[in-house]
Design a protein around this nucleic acid. Structure first.
Lengths: 332, 332
DNA sequence: ATGAAAGCGCTAACAC
DNA sequence: GTGTTAGCGCTTTCAT
């Protein structure tokens, strides 16, 4: 059923029908009779205008792309959910794309999204490469979680440096000078910043940073698992672990279970990324919690401002919060 | 940059350019020279054809809609991920929509998807209502997880009845005659079938079903939490819990922790839905695992068959598997 | 108060 | 081997 068919049925022109359907009856002084007739008939035939044709004509799609590395990481799942709710409220439709943490798939995904004429884009780039991002068409873009300070994209992110600092200071305060840091994907900004916070906290406390205590290379369960095995074999055992992401923490807990190494009695643990299950694990996990809902709200706010050519601020940091549980032993 | 502009630049017609770009040079005997020229120029100008215009013309979008109640439920997140991978392999683009477990939002979402001309649909309906599903346009549709046997949609689902049977038989075998069942959304098929399995297992063992032992009404953490509190106050305490979904289980564990009730020493627990964190909780959870990857693969296979008018089977059940851990005490 | 006609960017039927 | 033209379904300018 098309506008034209509807019009023919009513002995009207498609122009008139279109106007009524778009709520422009008043502006074009269409008679109440006609208006009512059109509305009723449209409803009766369950008429749905073609979004495709409409978008082609109007050159806008009311669609925002969301590109994230991994929906099955609950951090991104929660973020996606929040963004969807906020965008829906703004009348935008969200297209969610998972890039499997691959830059080449990310590039392909972006091409697809742009050929579909998205009006705006929210993206958490999967790696440290930016080449495919510089030559993007000029539409409003907001980066979330991951970002590149040297590129002029606006972004919303946790203050990861502060999170790294907070976590490490906490461990030191509890009497742990020898701390292993298990990192995620090395060239991502959150990872770099968390590590920077870790190093800074060490330095502030007069502890020399040991490169051998910085393990890992991916935000994954496997990485946490193998890094834990690695540290379990160290000659001089560390007394605490700072895990830089929730999948890593899960890997650590699995490996510790397998090796019958007790957390926190044998080794303490603090994690990044609050998760719903962190208070039912054995032991409940002390963690640096990112304010996911606020990140989502701010990102959409930022994007809407850009889409409506209102002024924005480029860098938007949100403070993470320490949640104290039972995975860190006080050894002072 | 449009096909026409490209053609003008090359002193060619848009037809020729379109043909080359769509790999039909051979069929239309376009000269190698022209072909190469077109390809190079397209690449030089970073030309991306408008998917909108293409879809409008071709009346197909190579897009499949996926509608699920809740991405932040890891069961659906994993399923979505698997489906995306499989659909990508088939050259389809997946549009993921979360309906926040609301039937009215589901209805709205479907309208949006259809006005965007999806070529196929995979859906896990959020509730028991079907009114909005009967009047859908006639495109290939596959239901997943949730389904309605009386409607003629093809579907892929775990054999939830068997799962319910398996779990309950296991508890009975371990010496638990008095089993509380905490259910999820009552009018969904998975829930009904799991409960049916629970009842059947009781009957097989000669145990009378007690309505008072069937608690809960939602696949949520809160529901698990409040149902546990309820059962903790029962006069005649049950010795085991059968939780019908992973969020429910999480709620149960939280509540048990708060009340200092030990699982499995004070009460045993078996859950539906294997989750990555089930072996790091205290205690590790015995569970009925759904074969998510296989469900995803089968659903896409089914959909592709329908989209290519190949024959399909309407009902596709996948056997769940019991994973034995430490949350059930043997009291024989 | 309503309509005719053009055009968004693409592809295909039908020329030559 | 390549081009002309029409049309997918919609909105809008310009007319009446």
């Amino acid at each position: 059923m098309t506008v034209h068919e509807l019009a023919t049925k009513l002995n009207l022109s498609s122009t008139t029908v279109s106007r009524v359907l778009n709520g422009k009856s008043k502006r074009y002084r269409i008679s109440a009779k006609t208006e009512q007739l059109v509305m009723e008939t449209a409803k009766a035939y369950n008429f749905r205008p073609s979004h495709l044709a409409r978008s082609l004509r109007l050159q806008q799609t009311h669609t925002v792309g969301l590109v994230i590395p991994d929906v099955s990481n609950p951090f991104f799942a929660s973020l996606a959910k929040r963004l969807e709710v906020e965008l829906r409220r703004e009348g935008k439709f969200m297209m969610l794309c998972d890039t499997l943490a691959s830059t080449s798939l990310e590039e392909e995904t972006l091409k697809i999204l742009f050929s579909r004429q998205i009006d705006g884009l929210i993206i958490a780039p999967s790696g440290g490469e930016t080449q495919h991002l510089v030559e993007l068409p000029e539409i409003p873009i907001v980066m979330i979680d991951r970002y590149f300070p040297e590129m002029e994209f606006d972004f919303v992110s946790s203050d990861n440096y502060r999170g790294g600092l907070l976590a490490t200071e906490y461990l030191i305060k509890k009497g742990h000078p020898r701390i292993v840091c298990i990192q995620g994907t090395k060239d991502t900004m959150p990872n770099k910043e968390r590590v920077r916070g870790y190093k800074q906290a060490l330095e502030n406390a007069g502890i020399r940073f040991e490169p051998g205590l910085l393990l890992g290379n991916e935000f994954s369960i496997d990485n946490g698992h193998s890094a834990f095995n690695e540290l379990a074999n160290m000659e001089q055992k560390p007394t605490a672990i700072f895990s830089l992401g929730n999948p890593i923490t899960m890997g650590v807990l699995k490996a510790a279970g397998e090796l019958k190494i007790s957390i926190p009695n044998d080794i303490s643990l603090i994690s990044f990324d609050e998760q719903p299950y962190f208070d039912i694990t054995s032991p409940p996990i002390t963690t640096i919690s990112q304010q996911i809902d606020e990140m989502g709200t701010r990102a959409v706010e930022l994007l809407m401002n850009k889409m409506n050519s209102r002024p924005t601020t480029q860098a938007n940091f949100i403070d993470p919060v320490l949640i104290e549980r039972d995975s860190v032993l006080d050894v002072r």
